[in-house]
Design a protein around this nucleic acid. Structure first.
Length: 773
DNA sequence: CTCTTCAGAATTTTT
DNA sequence: TTCTGAAGAG
């Protein structure tokens, strides 16, 4: 038998060997899911399944890329290349490109990102003279998005009295009309938004049976990763495609479903067994990633959720350290604690920055952490927030490129028609828009035929419009012969984009120029990569890649080792040796928006579960007592999630001083009189909603019991049972002899002579020493 | 039409 | 605190 099968455990192997029919793999955190998926695909190919017939849907493009590389390692590059692999959005965007004409879209349709969508909705609200307070563009987009994800078209909306009533009730009777106009305008602009990529795919498969049949025949084996995070629209696509052959394999973990806010429906995974009665179920329950303390602590949290599949994640790994809990005075101090701790752990365990990761609930929390890391001189990279391609200077250039491909792209046109400033103001754009709507033409066409249309625009402005049009048309001509990089370069030059920035001279402008440079380099890389792969080097493909790239995909790996900072959502599927989860405070995590219903709270809890299970060796949880929010200092209380972890897996540390200059840990003695008070002070006031939960908890967890376990945990941590002369084992340095002890409490250090690395002084608090004699 | 200034919102999470 | 959009002056 092939070697790759030998490296799998029994359930893993069975899942890999199961070839035909519907199957579900319930994969606990860290249970080797990716290995199974990879090997299963490789195995299918070894058994003679044509790689063209395998469709594999992943959660990020990066995941797809990595998986492809690993499969290539087993079956070879030339075969793996043909696999259909990617996110739902990118795979179906690719299919829509070839089928777009059936739906009345141009093949070079634009993909609107959320910013484009919000701007368009904003414009529509303005045109309809609606109150911006009542109709907040972002909220309206959210509503429209949820319609689309549930396959509620405009027509379906107007056929559904309940939905209309709901909007009427929310004093937003115009939602339906905004929806209609929005869809219309997207269609006219030859643009699809993110949700359209799925909705229109559904439309395609539903309206054109022969097209459905074509793709059913092509995708004989379908695999869906992170199935717990699929929405209804995705669910229907998968069902339709798998309907003929029924070779559908879904992989997921209901405990890690964290995307319901964007329409993910956890019922998809919970009901899979009902959808396919002859389904084969495989459970991967052994965790290979984390210490047993981490696994058990995570389990003790997720147990509190009611809706879940039956599964027991376990590990045979060592207990490892207890999970450290840290209270700080402020968010600033929290940052310093994290930075200090990372620094110490790095020194004491010979680690590099990329062994560490800091996770938070909201992007805005990153600032305090960044500041502290920067001060300590620790390299870090930050994921999320505003992605590279969303930056103004970058989007402006991309908008030029978008128009060259699709002149009807209204959002792109509105962005750059007066950037850099060329004297075409709001009034003119309004008039052009009105004319465009009147003649049922795009704004671009109206400008093109400006002399043939009667417009109330004065000659000076008309000239400016003509100049703009001349430039765009000459760029269009050049784009016929030049490659994506050359076009972009020409655009930057002709539109004088860099010049505009350079005359500014501010440091911000300088960094913008650098970003533009980086974009150009990026396009160059894109082209060389694609030539290597034998892929499509067109500008269209580049723009599509850009539109669908996640922040992860955009990041380069080859940077120097650095600490990773990201939201918990983004950490899905990743693992780090040391994980810091910060901001464990009520109203922040769980988020204030998610404390009102049980299902929302359960999702926050799953999010917490995901966070903990990212850690391989050591996890730190921290919370601050005060935090800046909107520039104001706000009091915070510890998150309920801290109380939900079984105390036996926890370990409380607290800094000595609130003085930022002093970062040493406290003498142990201050713990003795304080633990209860310091930790979960009972809130003076709780909202009605929470009160029941709190009461319940007080009954379940007897306080005195809690106190006892705390003390033991601490004692073990700092003192250990180590004496001079002991032989100890360290997981990095191997075995050594303790030759001296110094310091007290958390500062207690042991000097150890190791066979491999010589003498080392290690903080007992951090060194995971096992006494072996 | 452009540039500056000022008030008010913003922080859940993202393809 | 930082960003955005509106309003007013030139």
């Amino acid at each position: 038998m092939s070697t790759y099968l030998d490296s799998l455990n029994e359930p893993q192997r069975q899942a890999v060997l199961q070839k035909d029919g519907p199957m579900i793999i319930i994969a606990g955190a860290g249970s080797g899911k990716t290995r199974v998926l990879t090997y299963r695909i490789a195995h299918l190919m070894k058994q003679g399944v044509d790689s063209f017939n395998i469709l594999s849907l992943t959660f990020t493009n990066k995941a797809a890329k990595e998986m492809k590389a690993r499969i290539a390692g087993v079956v070879g590059n030339s075969e793996s290349r043909n696999l259909w692999m990617g996110t739902f959005h990118s795979v179906f965007a690719r299919i829509l490109r070839t089928e777009a004409d059936k739906l009345g879209f141009p093949t070079n349709f634009t993909i609107y990102d959320s910013q484009d969508s919000v701007r368009l909705i904003s414009a529509i609200i303005k045109e309809k003279n609606l109150n911006r307070e009542q109709y907040k563009p972002k909220q309206i987009l959210g509503r429209i998005s949820s319609f689309k994800n549930s396959l509620i078209t405009v027509k379906a909306y107007f056929n559904n009295p309940d939905l209309q009533e709901a909007d009427l009730h929310a004093s937003r009777p115009e939602v339906g009309n905004i929806y209609r106009t929005y869809v219309d305008r997207c269609f006219k602009a030859g643009a699809m938004d993110f949700d359209d990529l799925l909705l229109r795919t559904n439309e395609l498969l539903a309206r054109f049976p022969e097209t459905l049949a074509k793709y059913q025949d092509r995708f004989r084996y379908i695999m869906v990763d992170e199935y717990q995070d699929t929405n209804h629209s995705q669910y229907i696509i998968v069902r339709a495609l798998a309907d003929k052959f029924g070779n559908i394999c879904v992989v997921g973990d209901d405990s890690q479903s964290i995307y319901s806010f964007r329409g993910a429906n956890i019922q998809n995974i919970l009901n899979f067994q009902k959808d396919y009665p002859d389904v084969k179920t495989f459970k991967l329950e052994q965790n290979y990633r984390s210490t047993s303390n981490i696994v058990n602590a995570a389990n003790s949290v997720i147990e509190k959720n009611k809706t879940k599949l039956d599964k027991e994640v376990w590990t045979s790994n060592d207990p490892g350290d207890a999970i450290n809990v840290m209270r700080t005075i402020s968010d600033g101090e929290e940052g310093r604690f994290v930075a200090q701790s990372i620094w110490e752990n790095q020194m004491n365990h010979q680690l590099t920055p990329d062994d560490f990761c800091v996770l938070y609930r909201t992007n805005s929390q990153s600032r305090a952490i960044e500041d502290a890391l920067r001060k300590k001189g620790i390299d870090y990279k930050i994921y999320g927030g505003i992605s590279f391609y969303q930056r103004k200077e970058i989007k402006d250039i991309l908008s030029y490129l978008r128009i060259l491909i699709n002149p009807n792209d209204e959002e792109a046109l509105k962005r750059i028609i007066n950037y850099p400033a060329r004297g075409i103001g709001a009034t003119t754009i309004d008039r052009l828009t009105i004319a465009a709507n009147h003649y049922k033409k795009s704004i671009f066409d109206v400008i093109k035929y400006i002399d043939k249309i009667d417009l109330k625009i004065n000659t000076g402005t008309k000239n400016k419009l003509r100049n703009f049009m001349n430039m765009m048309q000459s760029l269009q001509i050049e784009s016929q012969t030049k490659n994506a990089f050359e076009i972009a370069e020409t655009v930057v030059k002709k539109a004088q984009l860099i010049k505009d920035l350079e005359k500014d001279g501010t440091p911000e402008a300088v960094s913008k120029v650098e970003n533009v440079q980086e974009l150009l380099n990026g396009i160059k890389d894109f082209i060389t990569d694609k030539i290597e792969e034998g892929g499509d080097t067109s500008l269209t493909t580049f723009l599509e890649d850009v539109a669908l790239a996640t922040d992860f995909d955009a990041k380069k790996d080859d940077d120097k080792p650095s600490v990773s900072l990201m939201t918990i959502h983004q950490s899905k599927g990743l693992e780090y040796m040391y994980v810091y989860i910060v901001g464990l405070e009520e109203s922040l995590f769980p988020s204030a928006m998610s404390m009102n219903t049980r299902s929302e709270l359960e999702e926050e809890r799953r999010l917490f579960y995901v966070a903990i299970t990212r850690a391989e060796k050591v996890a730190y949880l921290s919370y601050a007592q005060t935090r800046y929010r909107w520039g104001k200092l706000v009091d915070a209380e510890p998150s309920r999630f801290l109380e939900e972890i079984d105390d036996q897996y926890l370990n409380y540390i607290t800094p000595k001083s609130t003085n930022p200059a002093i970062n040493n840990f406290v003498d142990k003695s201050i713990f003795d009189d304080a633990p209860k008070g310091i930790r979960f002070q009972k809130p003076i006031q709780r909202k009605k909603m929470e009160r029941d939960l709190v009461k319940k908890k007080e009954i379940i967890i007897p306080k005195n019991l809690k106190k006892v376990s705390q003390t033991t945990a601490k004692a073990n941590l700092f003192d250990g049972n180590i004496v001079v002369g002991n032989f100890v084992e360290h997981n990095r340095f191997g075995t050594g002899e303790v030759i001296a002890l110094e310091g007290n409490g958390p500062n207690k250090k042991a000097e150890i002579k190791f066979g491999t690395v010589g003498k080392k002084k290690l903080l007992l608090q951090f060194a995971k020493l096992k006494v072996i004699g």
